[in-house]
Design a protein around this nucleic acid. Structure first.
Lengths: 147, 147
DNA sequence: CTCATATTAATTGCATGCAATTTAATTGTG
DNA sequence: CACAATTAAATTGCATGCAATTAATATGAG
């Protein structure tokens, strides 16, 4: 490698790449657990939102997950085909589609409850460390969304 | 929302989601700069590796980027079609494909050099803070890869 | 040397992400 | 009220990611 290679372009110095790599590796750790539930990672986080608050619009889901209808519509149709959610037009605003958990979708929650802790243990993070890192990342997301 | 909702499943408490969201938002900040160069984010990080070390195999690229040939092969074919790289079989091991920058690919580097700093400024991170966060994420990636 | 094993890319199939466009419904203004 | 502007999903098109399989080449144990 040339000695005069500009330091600011080195892959090792890129925060963006550290985030990108870390996110993908984390998702890989979830995969075996999610496979047991027959869920993809994105389907899983969508259910996390719904387990917290049922009967939310696609728009609201997108605001929580930072995803748009281009990603959510096909994903929700799959969850619907799996009988985990129902999609119904909001009678009060026919533009909106409300996503509602089915009994089966609600029931799946108990089988998912152990997953975050299982993954957390695997990476050897203390609750303290993980929380700090998460808060730092959440700050950064907020900062970036202002732009 | 039910008061007894299990705290460990709240989206806000998930490190995995903070990483996932932060990585995607960061990539969005890069997009306008990369659009100017006609590159996607993944093409960009691939070039970061090549600018540091030219003439590397697909396998080596994958080790740096944590990507497999399923992702890299089509991406490299696109970079080849854009005349930024060449793909040649390694004469010493015909199983390997070596990726080499073209003159044009090498030249693109000078137009990319300002990008990391431009993005960094936008997010309002000090060099110090960004570096610490990056190192923490790199540690975490290493930890996860052991599993 | 030889053939089973391992390694490297390429291919295939599926599920995202996201920009851009389209369609349908609602809202605000004169 | 009429209608332009806005909003919410859906659709389309393209580029990943990644598991699984395949094809070609290299390696190593006997």
């Amino acid at each position: 490698m040339a000695e005069d290679y500009p330091v600011q372009l080195k892959l090792e110095h890129q925060l963006c790449f550290a985030l990108y790599a870390c996110s993908r590796e984390m998702t890989k750790l979830y995969r075996p657990f999610l496979d047991e539930l027959g869920l993809t990672y994105t389907q899983y986080v969508t259910l996390l939102v719904l387990w917290e608050q049922d009967n939310v619009s696609v728009k609201q889901l997108g605001e929580h997950l930072l995803l748009d209808s281009g990603t959510l519509t096909p994903l929700l149709k799959k969850l619907e085909a799996m009988r985990l959610v129902a999609r119904v037009r909001d009678p009060k605003d026919e533009r909106s589609v409300l996503v509602q958990l089915t009994e089966e979708g609600r029931a799946l929650r108990s089988r998912a409850e152990h997953i975050p802790e299982s993954v957390f243990c695997q990476v050897g993070l203390t609750f303290e460390e993980g929380g700090k890192l998460r808060e730092r990342l959440q700050q950064l997301v907020e900062e970036m969304q202002k732009r």
